[in-house]
């Protein structure tokens, strides 16, 4: 029993890290809170769904397409929504970013409902029902695939941020945008790229969601809250700690399910979240 809690906790935890990593990147670099993050997760899921249903592209293989499409959407969102926020004094930007992305939820969720109806959608790939025995526990094949994808994406993100000049300029801007701009780094371009990557990562998480669970137009809030919890566990804007934070949330949730039953899965996370907010606002893993 304990082995099962740990196994599922780890799987779901790693998946949660994928859901949250984009939001963490955006907050870390721009200090904006994107409440519509979950809506982008849902849109990514829909793109995978349609690529699978219309063109027969396997959801795992559709991830590169999803990343590219969502990256472009991210660029547009930056231009239309985040870029005008610079009009405000620095102290007001964070609050206003929340209000504006909140308005964005209304727009995106209802646009999705309008385009693709409110039906719940999921992908049934040929391997969807298959399970693999791992340490005596039956694990769905898709979950393992999602974990592989998560490792790949977070690994590539890490390499990009630490090895390329653009990645390094994003990291530098996150730490001190004034110092970065003195080195000739175009801050606006850095923000633009970071926003694109953030939304692209949300989209990839959406593919995982539609594979492991299902999506519907108004389910974005659920994924946003999970990202938010992971973000606060990790400490706001800390990208590296997201992995550990995701694992922590996954394990604690599974423990909650074991003790209270499946209906209270999300409640456990949310209550823990508020406790952490109050007791350790700098995050669980911050030094």
């Amino acid at each position: 029993m304990i082995a099962q809690i740990i196994m599922y906790g780890v799987i779901i935890g790693i998946f949660y890290a994928l859901v949250a990593v984009g939001l963490s990147l955006l907050f870390g670099v721009m200090k904006y809170m994107n409440i519509a993050h979950g809506s982008f997760v849902v849109i990514g899921g829909y793109i995978s769904f349609w690529l699978f249903n219309l063109l027969g592209i396997d959801p795992f293989l559709s991830i590169p397409f999803v990343l590219v499409i969502m990256f472009v959407i991210g660029l547009i969102v930056y231009g239309l929504v985040f870029s005008p926020l610079k009009r405000f004094a620095e102290g007001q930007r964070l609050g206003n970013s929340m209000l504006i992305t909140f308005g964005l939820i209304l727009v995106l969720d209802n646009l999705v409902a309008f385009l693709w109806t409110s039906d719940v959608k999921t992908i049934t790939a040929p391997y969807s029902g298959q399970v693999i025995q791992l340490l005596g526990i039956r694990v769905p094949f898709t979950s393992l695939g999602v974990i592989g994808v998560t490792f790949a994406i977070i690994g590539i993100l890490h390499l990009f941020l630490s090895r390329t000049y653009i990645g390094q300029s994003i990291k530098a801007t996150a730490q001190d945008w004034e110092a970065a701009s003195l080195l000739g780094i175009n801050i606006n371009r850095t923000y633009l790229i970071a926003c694109g990557i953030s939304v692209a990562l949300a989209g990839a998480a959406g593919t995982a969601v539609v594979l492991m669970y299902s999506i519907s137009p108004y389910s974005g809030l659920e994924w946003m809250l999970i990202s938010m919890i992971v973000l606060v566990f990790a400490g706001l804007g800390k990208i590296r700690e997201v992995f550990l934070a995701g694992l922590a949330l996954g394990l604690l949730e599974q423990l909650g399910v074991f003790l209270l039953g499946g209906h209270y899965r999300a409640v456990v996370g949310l209550v823990l979240f508020v406790l952490i907010l109050i007791l350790r606002p700098q995050g669980l893993f911050a030094k």
Partner: peptide, 24 residues
């Protein structure tokens, strides 16, 4: 010009606070 453009023109500044990128 924006700050980064001025930097490109060949002006570099060392600031008074110790503004290294601490995590790098």
């Amino acid at each position: 010009h924006a700050v980064h453009r001025i930097a490109e023109m060949g002006i570099s500044m060392v600031t008074e606070e110790k503004r290294v990128f601490r995590d790098m």
